[in-house]
Design a protein around this nucleic acid. Structure first.
Lengths: 106, 106
DNA sequence: TGCGTTATTGGCAATATAGCCAAATAGCCA
DNA sequence: TGGCTATTTGGCTATATTGCCAATAACGCA
């Protein structure tokens, strides 16, 4: 693992780490539909505003979302449209697990 | 966020969390090429065997890899082939970041 | 059987993360 | 300006993660 490769792997890991939380995945799914203000997301998530704000800042730091202040509200949106296409693969992991279990039952 | 959705998001987050470490991403890349024993991976990574073993067990727990003991060696391989296709999207995040920076410089 | 090799597990210290409350900040409008 | 709303930040505690060393387990071979 040379230095350059290490840097690439760290950068990728940072993006994944930012996504690796249920609340943040939820936010990503919501923003996939349309941009949202912090207040809407807070309502949907049902946690403290400060908690939601911190999750958003993690996503922003990782380059996953962009924010846009308009008047009193801050709107967030996805920076790249592809994030969710990620999950075809993740789902195939679950499928493989299910198959393994069913073969145990046989 | 109902209970069912929450469970799905948690399951996905677990897979991402398992991937979200430079060493584990490296392992995934190596296993994409071919299966590997713990000793080879340890050599390539340059950490303590116990550390590598624990990373592997995180990947296994998450359903990302499978292991196979043959004689004295334990070989690991990817459970699903698509893991790395993940990164087209991640890379597009970096690209977007680079573009933003260059537009600042203008 | 006993030794050397490979891998996993337990335990520990250092560090990072999550979520809440409270305080600070920013913008609107009367 | 003063008060109201929306958001971010600081501070705290609880919990999780990382990586090393030491101990244990599993296997092959002399």
């Amino acid at each position: 693992m040379d230095q350059k490769q290490k840097a690439i792997l760290e950068a990728r890991a940072n993006v994944l780490k930012a996504m690796a939380h249920p609340t943040r995945l939820f936010i990503i799914e919501e923003l996939e539909k349309e941009e949202r203000c912090v207040c809407d997301l807070t309502e949907l998530i049902g946690a403290d505003v400060s908690t939601v704000s911190k999750h958003l800042s993690v996503l922003k730091q990782a380059g996953i979302v962009l924010s846009d202040k308009r008047g009193n509200l801050v709107f967030y949106r996805l920076r790249v449209p592809c994030i969710l296409s990620f999950f075809g693969c993740v789902e195939s992991i679950f499928k493989a697990q299910a198959e393994d279990h069913s073969s145990l039952v046989k």
